[in-house]
Design a protein around this nucleic acid. Structure first.
Length: 157
DNA sequence: GCCAACGTTGGC
DNA sequence: GCCAACGTTGGC
């Protein structure tokens, strides 16, 4: 199957591209949204590439690239009473939440900010630039992915 | 820290 | 199954 491309949001105060660089790979835990859950469970495939997007940040924007190294499996943090992601309604027999593992690929030499993304006509269809989008993982097109990589290499004006 | 937008919950 | 209340997200 052809490689797919994603954009995954994270709050850098919780987990950033730098943290990922240090640990090399990491379970992408704590997703508690059904639409995103379905993508994690069914759509993200090993070898897919994902942009790491820093939200609630200064500035918010794309910080680097990650690769999916383990496909959807149950989010066991939901069964851990001590975890902030504990969910009493998730039953180990019939898990409600899923996650994938991602691996560090690349940290951009600069953040490609949301403002910048919005200025690009080619990226106007991407959900992340549309207002009120609260999906923390979204599928993007190869051309969009490539375009953002290109932007990241461009020096800032 | 504010607040708009959106998702989820729960009473009916 | 509707919808108001509430919680969360995330840009600013």
């Amino acid at each position: 199957m052809a490689k797919q491309y994603w954009l995954m949001k994270t709050e850098p105060t919780v987990f950033s591209i730098d943290d990922l660089m240090e640990v090399k790979s990491e379970p992408w835990e704590g997703i508690r949204n059904y639409q995103v859950r379905n993508m994690l469970r069914d759509d993200l495939k090993k070898g897919d590439l994902a942009l790491c997007y820093h939200s609630n940040s200064k500035p918010s924007g794309v910080a680097g690239v990650m690769e999916v190294v383990k496909e959807g499996y149950p989010d066991y943090f939901a069964w851990d009473k001590k975890s902030k992601y504990f969910d009493i309604k998730s039953d180990p027999e019939n898990p409600r939440w899923f996650m994938v593992d991602v691996k560090f690929k690349e940290k951009f030499s600069r953040i490609v900010s949301l403002t910048e993304l919005k200025e690009e006509n080619k990226l106007s269809e991407m959900k992340v630039v549309q207002r009120g989008c609260r999906l923390s993982i979204m599928k993007i097109k190869k051309v969009e992915f490539d375009h953002i990589i290109k932007l990241s290499k461009k020096s800032v004006k």
